[in-house]
């Protein structure tokens, strides 16, 4: 598994996508913006590039040559995606703190940058993974349709929440005006759901990938 993760970062993932979280994270400094776009850029840009390079590099035939199990292949792939997501979240959070330090006024017309926002980011990634990866592992190489569906779902969830808080005052209260306790709870809830989705993603992916003829 660790060897496969090493392989992901040494061969498959272009170093640019390790730099990308910094660039995208910096967008957190735009004043008054729709910040759910920041984590979504990972889904829009990194994921399509990553999966098209798997295909272009014939990753599957490389893996077929190695003494690895299918479950390890799935674990390593999920590990690589989740690792990149966490990197994105970490850097977005750092830039979010910078944002709060620079502008002093947390009131954004869309979602504010607070712990609840990051709870939502975890959920967005969780949903994205849960759709994208099991669908991808149905074949192990074709990623077009899984990508369209998972991106649509993630975008609807992210931008939908941005819109909902404008129209729904109780949701707005929950996300933006609740006390520290509830904010922390929402963040932890998001992390919990993200963790659960990783397990579910793994279970579904491996079930499908096991029956794939390479």
């Amino acid at each position: 598994m660790l060897n496969l993760l090493y392989k992901e970062f040494k061969l498959s993932i272009h170093p640019f996508f390790l730099l990308f979280p910094f660039l995208i994270g910096a967008l957190m400094l735009i004043p008054q913006w729709i910040f759910t776009l920041v984590p979504l850029y990972f889904c829009f840009v990194s994921i399509p590039n990553l999966f098209s390079s798997y295909k272009a590099f014939n990753d599957l035939s490389f893996l077929a040559m190695l003494p690895v199990s299918k479950s390890d292949i799935v674990k390593a792939r999920i590990g690589a995606v989740v690792g990149l997501e966490l990197l994105h979240i970490l850097l977005a959070a750092i830039f979010a703190l910078l944002n709060r330090a620079i502008y002093h006024n947390p009131n954004n017309f869309a979602l504010d940058l607070n712990p609840a926002f990051f709870g939502l980011v975890f959920v967005i990634y969780g949903v994205f993974n849960l759709i994208m990866l099991p669908m991808f592992f149905k074949t192990g190489y074709s990623f077009g349709v899984p990508l369209i569906i998972s991106i649509t779902a993630a975008t609807l969830l992210g931008l939908g929440m941005e819109l909902l808080i404008i129209f729904n005052s109780s949701l707005r209260y929950l996300m933006e005006e609740s006390g520290n306790g509830i904010q922390a709870l929402l963040l932890i809830l998001g992390m919990g759901l993200f963790t659960l989705s990783i397990f579910e993603t793994y279970i579904l992916s491996i079930r499908r990938f096991e029956s794939v003829d390479v």
Binding site: D59, S61, M65
Partner: peptide, 11 residues
């Protein structure tokens, strides 16, 4: 194992 040409990670 070698199945076909070694055509992976050619770059």
């Amino acid at each position: 194992v070698m199945l076909g040409d070694m055509d992976f990670y050619v770059k």
